[in-house]
Amino acid sequence: MKAVITVIGKDMVGILAKVSATCADANANIIEVSQSVLQDYFAMVMLIDTENLNVDLARLDENLKKNVTGMQIHVMHEDIFNSMHRI
């Protein structure tokens, strides 16, 4: 199964590094990253493979929020996007 991590907020140094490190700790394989910076506004969407995750999704969400402060972070199972946007 796959999950989507989104990170939104003011751009600063090391966001991607912190998110990636937290994913690696949880044994989540990063499949794809897409990010954009518009003026100072940072938005990143990351698709991860959660097949071999060593914590549950809720814990990964907590860890990300702890490690990457000052940003809006969401970890959501990919099915919610598939069901809402695909027929």
Partner: peptide
């Protein structure tokens, strides 16, 4: 994002 795109997400 495979079948997903950033705008939808």
């Amino acid at each position: 994002m495979g079948l997903l795109n950033m705008t939808d997400i």
